[in-house]
Design a protein around this nucleic acid. Structure first.
Lengths: 358, 358
DNA sequence: TTGTACGCGTTATCAG
DNA sequence: CTGATAACGCGTACAA
């Protein structure tokens, strides 16, 4: 018989405490608690009874050690839990939680040294995988894991390493979707007000816009594309400029809901009716902005919650040894509200609570 | 000599791999790597050299097991990483990361069963402490940890258990601060447009408003307090009602920035000048709303980032055995922008990047 | 100066 | 049916 320490009051009970209290060996206790082996029902029951009385809870640290698997993943974010990270994280956590995985939260806030420390810590904690997230889709430096074979996945960001798996929204498709929605609504002179060109998302959304125009034999008014900061003020300013020049425009596709809101405010205050005179489509489906705009914004949703869930699922696949790599794009969807009028061709309209309304 | 398994290619190197490669025993390797014991400098150096070549990284799971401490805490959130959780989480992660603690992220999304599963998981993973967060400050059911002595702390939420430590913003002080700011700016007929009364925060902010009026011998116009949903639309509607009734009002204290924005929009569209005719103060300092309002909102900041950091620090204290309990309130601060005019008595004005401007 | 042996909490295997 | 033992990866007294 091994030496067994007394149960000091506030100590977390171990399986040995259970075994001793039940008058069996540690091995037997283990089997009883895990439903393994051949045990007399009475023994099994007694052990389980005692375990629950003692508040015994198996130590995951040890299990991880034994199984060589921690059921834990690391989530590295450079977006301070902002607009994009939030739905992503939610989707990731939902999917991972269902698979009994836990998530280590790491906010690197664009600081490489801090990111490095987090990586080291995650590896030391033997996470089974890592998801990297960002606030923009542009390529970033790959994370160097050394020789360690921990699966890694980039979500809402990407890296040049061809072996890396990167999940991104299809911003070109999103831009095309928005523009075609306007075209189907009968609009022919569509302007695009968007963010800084240094953002990949800006360039891709614009290419979708241009592709849609071309596919329908339309030309952009000139200037067709106005790039500026990601702000309401810019949307307001850009629209004011358009109206001052008395440019003939019947629709605006905005690169973000914030820009769209500024645009709609400017239109309204200049006496231009939305959507009758000028229809507007935004981007992001940021409820707090989109739903509060008057009229509420028709906008593009990047399905980030879904993308997060997908990221989690794919990471679990990588952990299970399924090979996967490359940059993968996932479609955006259009959320129809009032800023673009209504039309038979609209996709399913959803109320704020997420349930289909018809 | 113990049996040592061969280094299979993708296996994470253990201290035994290092020891074998260096031609020393495991014990010696351990000492060399930890700077313990008396070793020849050459041996120490050689072991360290080899360890780094192999990419050896001590297994935290084991260290946790040995030290009976995991340097890990659980963060339970019922707010889906929304507006309040985000700054809180950031503050928590910042402070905890500095102390070399890692954070397990748990989104309970108001589902008790899910919360229970998370708690069980955290306890199994032997977290050293738990922080509970929410999207509102109202009391919630205490978390039942059974007999386990894991420290727990409630941040931006509270529970009735007198032994629990709960950290909250001082909403009464915030309401008072906002109102006194308006009074100091010379306003005498101040209305309060706020959220649903079932929110504790609403009742507290209102009590601060009333206390400030009383302290300065002012009376609220009637009706002085208008409660409605937490939305821009409500702010807009409430102001429209006030203007229709031609009520004499020279200032509005709003219970949230969203309400304030709706209010300011309504005022502007009715031709009322802000702040000249009616001054407005918001609540939350939600940049994306407050800074985009025209004019930008003077508002109350609950210092949630700081509160998060404090929560982390206090939790570390609890973990170290320092007793602490009760509901503790921390002051809000006023952020001066344009919606209330300027005044000599303003507190430090801050630019968007957080650095003082003067 | 270096090696040995034990313990941390648990599971699995094999002997009894 | 039950118990003993090895193994997981590491730190640390203690022996050599």
């Amino acid at each position: 018989m091994t030496q067994i320490p007394p149960i000091s009051p506030n100590r977390v009970p171990t399986i040995r405490d259970v075994a001793r209290a039940a008058g069996v060996s540690v091995g037997t206790a283990s089997k009883a608690l895990n439903g393994q082996g051949q045990l007399r029902e009475e023994t099994r029951g007694r052990v389980q009874q005692i375990a629950s009385e003692l508040g015994f809870r198996p130590n995951d640290l040890m299990q991880s050690l034994l199984r060589q698997k921690s059921f834990t993943i690391g989530l590295i974010s450079t977006d301070s839990y902002g607009r994009f990270s939030s739905p992503l994280m939610e989707g990731i956590e939902d999917a991972l939680g269902a698979a009994q995985f836990s998530v280590f939260l790491c906010n690197a806030s664009d600081d490489p040294a801090r990111e490095r420390r987090h990586i080291e810590s995650l590896l030391s904690k033997r996470v089974d995988g890592i998801i990297v997230t960002s606030r923009r889709t542009d390529p970033r430096a790959p994370i160097d894991l050394g020789v360690v074979g921990v699966p890694i996945l980039y979500a809402y960001t990407q890296t040049d390493d061809p072996d890396a798996l990167c999940l991104l929204p299809d911003d070109a498709q999103g831009g095309q979707l928005a523009t075609e929605h306007l075209i189907r609504a009968g609009r022919k002179r569509i302007v695009h007000i968007t963010g800084p060109e240094k953002f990949l998302a800006v360039r891709e959304r614009r290419s979708g816009y241009e592709a849609a125009l071309e596919a329908h034999g339309l030309k952009a008014p000139k200037p067709g594309v106005l790039a500026g900061p990601w702000s309401e003020a810019w949307g307001f300013e850009a629209v004011s400029g358009i109206l001052e020049r008395k440019a003939k425009v019947d629709a605006i596709f905005c690169g973000s809901d914030q820009i769209a809101r500024g645009a709609v405010d400017a239109l309204r205050e200049h006496g231009v009716r939305v959507p009758e005179d000028i229809a507007v489509v935004g981007y992001d489906n940021w409820e707090i902005i989109a739903a509060a705009t008057r009229p509420a914004l028709t906008t593009i949703d990047m399905n980030l919650h879904t993308l997060g869930g997908l990221a989690a699922t794919k990471l679990l696949g990588l952990i299970d040894g399924h090979k996967d790599s490359g940059v993968q794009r996932f479609p955006c969807r259009l959320i129809a509200r009032a800023s673009c009028g209504t039309s038979e061709t609209l996709v399913t309209k959803r109320k704020e609570d997420g349930r289909p309304t018809r």
